[in-house]
């Protein structure tokens, strides 16, 4: 009873959309969401929080933080999480299909054209340009990530170790990701062990 009342009084005033409404909006975001990542994050915010008011500012922020913990693209995770909140598992699946459909169709069409013309000298040269552009982009992405990495020497050591391992051996990078996660967890365990030890010794000394 009490809970119901507080729910009514909550200022969020979120209007739940139907699955069809969700699919329509997700389809639009999938069709115009160029650039990926944080550029699309702005688009999602302006559509879902500002325009449709389907989720509150607070919930959007929480959901973004949550999405960063999941594997895969931030925007896909965020939109899947929001769709789940709005309409359950069915809405989440339908909405994700809608989100990906425009780029899926475009890629299949372009891939067909590209693979048919692959050996044409102009297409070949265009590809060489494309690949160079992609390498440049990847370098920029790494630059951005390095700036976001917490400035602790442990993080740089882990990154450097992964880089050297990756360059020296034909390793599947999945192993490196797992090792990185374990290194992070191990650091916390060691630190908390030391903290406990010094807390025990503290009063005696």
């Amino acid at each position: 009873m009490n809970m119901e009342k507080s729910h009514e009084l909550s200022p969020a005033a979120e209007v739940l959309p139907t699955t069809w409404n969700i699919v329509r909006v997700w389809l639009t975001i999938g069709a115009i969401g160029f650039g990926g990542g944080y550029a699309v994050l702005d688009l999602i915010h302006s559509e879902l929080v500002v325009k449709y008011k389907w989720i509150s500012e607070q919930r959007f922020e929480n959901m973004t933080a949550l999405s960063e913990m999941g594997p895969g693209a931030l925007t896909v995770n965020l939109l899947a999480g929001i769709a789940y909140r709005l309409g359950g598992v069915g809405a989440m699946i339908a909405a994700t299909i809608a989100l990906i459909l425009p780029s899926f169709l475009l890629i299949v069409a372009l891939a067909g054209v590209f693979l048919a013309w692959e050996n044409n000298p102009v297409v070949k040269s265009a590809m060489e340009g494309l690949t160079a552009g992609v390498v440049g982009l990847l370098i920029a992405v790494v630059w951005d990530m390095v700036k976001r990495i917490p400035g602790h020497w442990c993080c740089f050591a882990v990154g450097l170790a992964a880089l050297l391992l990756g360059l020296a051996f034909p390793l599947n990078p999945i192993w490196l990701v797992l090792l990185g996660g374990m290194a992070g967890a191990a650091k916390v365990l060691v630190v908390s062990l030391f903290a406990r030890k010094s807390a025990k010794e503290g009063p005696n000394s």
Binding site: V142, M145, V146, R148, I149, P150, H152, C154, C155, F156, V158, G159, L160, A162, L163, G166, L176, V177, L179, G180, G181, M182, A183, G184, A185, K187
Partner: peptide, 9 residues
């Protein structure tokens, strides 16, 4: 924090 530097690498 352990995964992010690896991803950059």
């Amino acid at each position: 924090h352990g995964v992010l530097p690896v991803v950059a690498a």
